[in-house]
Design a protein around this nucleic acid. Structure first.
Length: 275
DNA sequence: CTCCTGTCCTGCCGGC
DNA sequence: TGCCGGCAGGACAGGA
């Protein structure tokens, strides 16, 4: 799925082209996503104006005009939010289509249907929902310091890579950027989280922020099917140091990049640089 | 509590 | 050519 850089890129696209528009129609597929569609979905949002777009973790948050519900999208593994002309042929996996009064449609397309759409009556209701109530800090939040990270890591016996992907600790880091960040600080992905010391925590913090920032600057990473709101692919996959490079030489030292499985997810690291 | 595994789904790729 | 197994960017439930 889209990790933080991809979701951020989508949000920026939506902010440019959808903010200010009014929702004039809603269409839903007959296939449910990870959650059921919100009750009275169309009635609650048709006629409302999109005031702004924000992001929390990997959720896209669509703010509607004052007093209206808050609209949330999550893209799961394969979801896309696409802005397009209403004349465009809707595809098989479009599940939510919003018609806007500025001549644009916004479609949530998601073949695997691990994504979701939700509607909350208030900020409080949203934050109380299970999807939001357990989320950790944003990686770029000033409150997310090396000391905080170190404290969190010390609580966990699990592998540091698994800890980085735990959205209760820090949000937005998924399977790709966890491997990439650990490569940058030369830490082996299976190191127990509670063995990471203070100075390593500083390195991890910097590496996580650097890799996410660079990926955002590149418009995210496209492996198979990620696209931004305008249907364009990202470029950061060309800068992967380890992800998807099993058996290839490390760009730093020339040693083999190894692939292992951790918690059912592919994990990549340099056999020499990271130990 | 934490941690680990399996599951939700479709599509695609490689091997036979 | 076709079939089948395995794998894919996430999140959650349920059991140990």
């Amino acid at each position: 799925m889209p990790e933080l850089p991809e979701v951020e890129t989508i949000c920026r696209g939506l902010a440019l082209s959808a903010a200010g528009a009014e929702i004039t129609g809603v269409r839903l597929s007959n296939l449910r996503l990870r959650r059921d569609y919100p009750d009275s979905f169309a009635e609650r949002i048709v006629g409302k104006k999109i005031t702004s777009i924000s992001r929390r973790a990997k959720y896209v948050i669509v703010h509607l005009n004052n007093g209206s519900p808050i609209l949330i999208f999550h893209l799961g593994m394969s979801g896309k939010l696409l802005l397009r002309s209403p004349e465009a042929v809707s595809s098989k996996h479009d599940h939510v289509i919003l018609t806007l009064n500025n001549g644009i449609e916004l479609a949530l397309n998601d073949p695997r249907r691990f994504g979701m759409v939700a509607l909350f009556n208030s900020e409080q209701e949203m934050l109380a929902d299970a999807a939001f109530s357990n989320l950790g800090l944003e990686p770029f939040d000033k409150k997310f310091t090396a000391a905080v990270l170190h404290t969190e890591l010390k609580k966990r016996k699990t592998a540091v890579k698994v800890a980085l992907m735990d959205q209760a600790m820090v949000v937005g880091v998924g399977n790709i950027y966890a491997s990439e960040a650990l490569y940058r600080c030369r830490i082996h992905p299976s190191r127990p989280a509670n063995s990471i010391d203070g100075s390593e925590s500083e390195k991890i913090l910097k590496a996580v922020r650097d890799v996410l920032r660079e990926a955002i600057e590149s418009g995210g990473s496209t492996l198979r099917d990620y696209a931004n709101a305008n249907g364009e692919t990202g470029y950061f996959q060309h800068n992967f140091a380890v992800y998807g490079r099993g058996g290839k030489p490390c760009r730093t030292c020339g040693a083999d990049i190894m692939m292992m499985r951790m918690g059912g997810r592919s994990t990549f690291y340099c056999i020499s640089c990271q130990n």
